[in-house]
Design a protein around this nucleic acid. Structure first.
Length: 180
DNA sequence: TACTCGATCGGA
DNA sequence: CCGATCGAGTAA
């Protein structure tokens, strides 16, 4: 049976480990007709002010403020003036880190994920919990180590070779087996 | 206030 | 390959 992932689970572990851990979990969106769940299939980690690809690398600003919250809230921002990007803030308070949801089952691309689930900046700073209408569930999908491929993050060349090359993007290579 | 550029996507 | 489209960040 589904277990709602609580904020506490997002505060202790390293962001990179969490990005991998989130694969196979379900992103759940409340709708008029009830919750819609999509399995997370691709993520990227953004970790600390040192990470030049992380929006917090320029310090605590109006936009990056959400990244400094304690893990368990959503960070949603507009990219290229067109696409809403959905991130899950991780780590303890005042440590800026987040995981970008790049794809869910059947929906490839971060801009498409938010469009499909009707997510926009109104959810920025909101809790990852049923109360906000957007949360994460563990539905028992098991993801083996070799079902995951790690690679460099997409579209962050501007961060310089050191950070652009970090293998902090995680993707399911094949559909993992479902329980039951 | 005046720039520049982006954690993307869809169409030429 | 290129345009869309707008807000954040920076410089001034």
């Amino acid at each position: 049976m589904p277990r709602i992932v609580k904020a506490k689970a997002l505060r202790g572990r390293n962001t990179v480990a969490l990005a991998r851990w989130l694969l196979g979990k379900h992103l759940v969106r409340a709708t008029r007709t009830g919750p819609v769940a999509r399995m997370i299939t691709e993520t990227e980690a953004y970790h600390s002010v040192r990470d030049r690809a992380c929006h917090a690398s320029r310090g605590r600003t109006r936009r990056s403020e959400t990244l400094f919250a304690a893990g368990g809230v959503w960070y949603v921002y507009l990219c290229y003036g067109v696409h809403e990007m959905l991130n899950l803030v991780t780590g303890p308070a005042d440590f800026p880190a987040a995981v970008l949801i790049r794809a869910v089952d059947g929906v490839s691309g971060p801009g498409r994920v938010t469009r499909a689930l009707r997510v926009d900046r109104r959810l920025n700073g909101a809790a990852c919990a049923p109360a906000s209408g957007l949360w994460i569930e563990d539905r028992g999908v098991r993801v083996s180590r070799r079902a995951v491929i790690a690679g460099p993050r997409v579209g962050v060349d501007y961060a310089g070779p050191v950070w652009a090359k970090k293998p902090w993007r995680f993707k399911l290579t094949a559909a993992p087996a479902n329980p039951d």
